[in-house]
Deep mutational scan, measured.
Amino acid sequence: MQRVNMIMAESPGLITICLLGYLLSAECTVFLDHENANKILNRPKRYNSGKLEEFVQGNLERECMEEKCSFEEAREVFENTERTTEFWKQYVDGDQCESNPCLNGGSCKDDINSYECWCPFGFEGKNCELDVTCNIKNGRCEQFCKNSADNKVVCSCTEGYRLAENQKSCEPAVPFPCGRVSVSQTSKLTRAETVFPDVDYVNSTEAETILDNITQSTQSFNDFTRVVGGEDAKPGQFPWQVVLNGKVDAFCGGSIVNEKWIVTAAHCVETGVKITVVAGEHNIEETEHTEQKRNVIRIIPHHNYNAAINKYNHDIALLELDEPLVLNSYVTPICIADKEYTNIFLKFGSGYVSGWGRVFHKGRSALVLQYLRVPLVDRATCLRSTKFTIYNNMFCAGFHEGGRDSCQGDSGGPHVTEVEGTSFLTGIISWGEECAMKGKYGIYTKVSRYVNWIKEKTKLT
């Protein structure tokens, strides 16, 4: 034993070699072989497995989906700052455009905790909710729209109204504003409101030439003092309507412009014939205590009207009353817009006519005020429907199939267009061939041609 100890002390290297040989010859039971080890760690190889990531292109799944990435790591994937920024906006807080917040056709661009709407022409605001041009839906104005110097929408209202708090709607500024039905039992019968379409306001006024200088022999019209197929109006439903009495009662109609003036057809009036105007009328054979009678003290036909040349060209006249009318729910003026808007309103496509005229061709006159909704007829169809001249200051309205029309005794009465609950004068009943005849239409004086003249002559002093 002493000898062994001496050998170990003198030859430590020998001992180490012996131990190493023993270990190498022993069977290893701690580690699995290569094949079995792979069965336990069965993990798919990654895209760049075996390579240094710093030297390969980034992978979106590896960089940002398996674990949260930084902007720089995302930049490695896209290799483009702009594309990385677009991805980053949604990656950080989701897609803010998912709810489609942009209105009126706006395009949404996502941002971090926010979004941006790219608005089409005519709109602005956070969600493109603000109209900035009158060309689109009248700028959301209830009545009139004008573009300011910086191309912003400025709404306005006709006389007797003021802008509401929203700067879009119009509200009454006087007790009985024009064009409004205020009798409670008839307010439910107000005709369907007309909503502004998209309009090209630059070209809204037709490029028409008034044929002022045409000389033409007097034409022989049949029954051209021209509501057939209409309905009984309720008291106060058309408070701007008046009836004219002269040699015979209810020979023509008219509309209240203001307390002192009536507008009617020029062919209705004769110099030297006494005319009485009755406002607030409903049943011409009954006294309903809503009527107001006034005498006409002055007749002003349009300066281009000449019955000797043509009885229905420039067929418009103004009547001055001896005493002002007292405005109330049964006696209310009709609204008159400017030339541009009167023309736009007419193009809405349908209007209402009213009167006490004959209820059928050569038949009896109506006792109760009649009204009828009539569609506008395109000019080409209008011209083809008659052998008589249709001037540019006239328009056609009615039904091709016949059966409904204005008729004798309705002449001078109103053709009105309702705009968001307020009625505007767009025409004056003038003439036609018979009444409600198939293929024939009622012919009306186009008020847009005469609004400046009306307003100039009827100013209240």
Rank of each mutant, 00 (worst) to 15 (best):
V4N: 12
I7M: 14
S11L: 11
L14G: 03
G21V: 15
Y22P: 02
A26C: 12
C28T: 08
F31S: 15
E35V: 13
E35Y: 09
N36E: 11
L41Q: 15
R46H: 04
N48D: 15
L52Y: 15
G58L: 07
R62W: 06
E66Q: 08
S70T: 10
S70W: 03
R75L: 07
E82D: 15
E82C: 03
R83W: 05
G94N: 09
D95E: 10
D95G: 13
S99G: 12
N100Q: 13
P101K: 05
G105C: 03
S107D: 09
C108P: 02
C108Y: 02
D110F: 10
S114C: 10
F123W: 15
N127G: 04
N127E: 05
C128M: 02
L130N: 12
L130R: 14
C134A: 03
S156R: 10
S156D: 11
S156M: 10
T158K: 02
A164L: 06
Q167D: 10
S169T: 12
C170S: 01
P172F: 04
V174E: 09
F176P: 00
F176C: 03
C178D: 00
G179H: 01
V181R: 10
V181F: 05
V183P: 11
S184Y: 10
S187D: 11
T190P: 10
T190I: 12
V199N: 12
V199Q: 14
D200W: 09
E208P: 13
I210Q: 14
T215S: 09
T215G: 06
S217R: 07
S217E: 11
N222C: 05
A233Q: 06
A233R: 05
Q237G: 09
V248Y: 09
S255D: 00
I256T: 02
V257K: 01
V257Y: 02
W261Q: 00
W261C: 00
A265S: 09
H267R: 05
C268Y: 00
T271K: 03
G272N: 03
V273G: 02
V273I: 09
I275E: 02
V277Y: 00
G280R: 02
E286K: 11
T287R: 07
H289I: 09
T290C: 05
N295W: 02
I297T: 03
P301R: 08
H303D: 11
Y305W: 12
A308C: 05
I309A: 13
I309C: 05
K311E: 06
I316H: 00
L318W: 00
L319G: 02
D338G: 11
K339M: 14
T342S: 14
I344D: 14
K347I: 03
K347R: 14
F348C: 10
S350M: 07
G351R: 01
G351Y: 00
Y352D: 04
H361M: 14
G363C: 04
V368C: 06
L369F: 11
Q370Y: 04
Y371A: 13
L372M: 11
P375Q: 11
P375D: 07
R379T: 14
C382D: 01
C382R: 03
L383H: 14
T389M: 08
Y391M: 14
G398Y: 04
F399I: 15
E401D: 15
R404T: 12
G409A: 08
G413Y: 13
P414M: 13
V416H: 05
T417C: 04
E418K: 09
E420A: 14
G421E: 06
T422D: 00
S423Q: 09
S430N: 10
E433K: 07
C435T: 04
A436I: 14
M437C: 07
K438Q: 14
Y444T: 01
K446S: 09
V447M: 10
Y450N: 01
